[in-house]
Amino acid sequence: MIDDKLVIAGIEFQSRLWVGTGKYKDFAETKRAIEASGTDVVTVSVRRVNIIDRSKENLLDYLDPKIYKILPNTAGCYTARDAIRTAMLAAEAGITKLVKLEVIGDDKTLFPDNEATLEAAKVLVKEGLIVLPYTTDDPIMAKKLVDVGCSAVMPLAAPIGSGLGIRNPYNIRIIMETVKVPIIVDAGVGTASDVAFAMEIGCDAVLLNTAIAGAKDPIAMAEAMKYGVLGGRLAYKAGRIPKKLYASASSPLEGMIGS
């Protein structure tokens, strides 16, 4: 596993598990969960600074920039224009050129608006950002996003926060065969086996938030996710046996008594 680092646009990532920072009880819990997950990539949103109350702490004060890569997202944007504005502000705030591009199409499903995502991606790539777009599990869309210069594709496993796991592994596999950039499953995983499965089929990384933050014990779940990723990735690299309908004995038949 030593030479098994994930590289996107020349940036090396230690962990294949990326985590969001929403929905936790407080920053102390967020920090403990992030540490337990073993991740080095943390996604954050871009929001107005609280002008009225300056006493509130900032999450980033809890996260050592030497350990964690901050991945700003455009969460909450419903139009290409808002997503572009938000991403450009994130880049200007000065931590990174990376952006997780999200343009939401509908607040019930939180499915992405692919058309608007593509439009925003085009602009942001031209502006020099490293764009990682959240998209449906659609191979054609993935290809279009890569064609306009996206550095990775982030297809959903299932609706955000649903915990359903990868609902269409065949599409995810076709996406992996269609585009030559890293595939990061984003959203919808529920538990460690979902993460392991994503890795076993060859995805490059998984981004999740609710599955950890919403668990009864977020710290324990964060650790479970860490092992899910490690186990799944190792299994993928090891090369699993093919599935067969009938048995094949694992003990030798020679030397049986009575033969």
Binding site: K23, V44, V46, N58, L59, A75, I160, N209
Partner: peptide, 17 residues
């Protein structure tokens, strides 16, 4: 004027801060 910074938030969530 808009003054923005990074806040807690994962995947289309607006929590914390």
């Amino acid at each position: 004027l808009e003054v923005v910074s990074f806040m807690a938030g994962g995947i289309s969530l607006e929590y914390g801060v």
